[in-house]
Simulated assay, not measured.
Amino acid sequence: MLRTERHARILEHVSAKGGVDVHELSRLLNVSGATVRRDLQHLSRLHLLRRTHGGAVVGSIGLEVPVQHRAERRRPEKQAIARAAAALVPEGAVVGMTGGTTVTEVARLLAGRGPVTIVTNAVNIAAELVLHRDVNLVVIGGNARTASYELVGPIAEKTLADHHTDMTFLGVDGISAAHGCTTHDQLEAATDRAFAAGSGRTVVVADHSKIGKVTFAKICPLTDIHHLVTDDGAPRDQLARIADAGVPVTVVESR
């Protein structure tokens, strides 16, 4: 297992449980306790968790796993979601794209498919698409967030208010029937909300770990969402509640 993947699993596990000990992580990751301690020390220096005697703790709502630690996690699921999501885009469409690892997979597919206009605030997506001749790329400015590689804030929102997209692919940190779509950062939530407000159709792409989850800042209620694409690892009861709230749900096979 790569070190970055190991760190991602540690952060997700600590986030889900609120706290773990070294022995538990050692069994989970199949590595030595010394390796786990080094990993926890590294993540503590990055202020991603707080070391305790024999383990680590963190607030489950407050933790945001940086995008570089998430890129390889559940990649087969994200690629399967992206294939289904990209199939929803007609040729020549104007497509909004927020940040997120699953949205990035959608962007890669659209870039290789034919003429499309992509409006994004994600600098990593922009960097991948800028040399594709069939992509008319529009990059939204704003304040850079290192955790998500997104440009957010009043500049981004003002630019989005002056433009319209046929559809937007929205990356979220959580989606539930009770709380709608949520993310970790208030500025990011407001910018995501501006993407949705200026779009004819908003599609959430989220792997199963996001379904039923609630994080700090609310992006929008489910009434603002036109479609959810997720994978077959998602909790069925949560998907049923989202569908009952009026959101069409597409569930893809991840294997």
Score class of each variant (00 low, 15 high):
M1K: 05
L2P: 13
R3Q: 13
T4W: 03
E5T: 10
E5F: 01
I10A: 03
L11M: 13
L11Q: 09
E12W: 13
E12R: 14
E12M: 08
H13G: 07
S15R: 15
S15W: 10
S15L: 15
A16K: 15
K17S: 15
K17I: 14
G19A: 15
D21W: 12
H23I: 08
L28V: 08
L29N: 13
V31E: 09
T35R: 07
R37D: 11
D39E: 11
L40E: 04
H42S: 14
L43K: 12
L46N: 12
H47M: 15
R51P: 04
T52F: 05
G54D: 03
G55Y: 10
G55D: 09
V57A: 10
V57Q: 13
G62L: 13
L63R: 12
V65P: 02
H69I: 06
H69T: 05
R70L: 09
R70G: 03
E72Y: 03
E77W: 00
Q79V: 15
A87K: 06
L88H: 01
V89R: 02
G92D: 10
A93N: 07
V95S: 13
G96P: 06
M97V: 02
G99W: 06
G100R: 02
V103T: 12
T104Y: 11
V106N: 07
R113D: 13
R113Y: 14
P115L: 10
I118A: 03
V119P: 08
T120A: 05
T120Y: 10
N124Q: 14
N124A: 13
I125G: 02
I125M: 06
A126T: 09
A126C: 09
E128Q: 14
L131Y: 14
R133Q: 12
R133D: 14
N136M: 12
N136I: 10
N136R: 15
L137I: 15
L137D: 10
V139T: 07
I140M: 06
R145N: 08
S148H: 04
S148R: 03
Y149C: 10
E150Y: 07
V152F: 02
V152P: 03
A156W: 07
K158N: 11
L160N: 06
L160S: 08
A161K: 08
D162R: 14
H163I: 14
H164V: 14
L170G: 04
V172M: 01
V172F: 10
V172K: 05
D173W: 09
I175T: 07
I175A: 00
I175V: 09
S176A: 06
S176C: 06
A177W: 00
A178H: 08
D185L: 12
L187E: 11
T191D: 00
T191H: 11
A194F: 11
S199K: 04
R201H: 11
T202Y: 04
V203F: 00
I211Y: 02
T215S: 15
A217H: 08
K218Y: 01
K218T: 13
I219N: 01
C220N: 08
C220M: 06
P221V: 06
L222Y: 00
I225A: 00
H226Q: 04
T230D: 00
D231H: 06
D232Q: 00
A234K: 01
R236Q: 05
D237S: 13
D237T: 11
Q238G: 02
A240T: 07
A240W: 04
V247I: 04
P248E: 04
P248Q: 03
V249I: 05
V252P: 03
S254W: 01
S254M: 04
R255L: 02
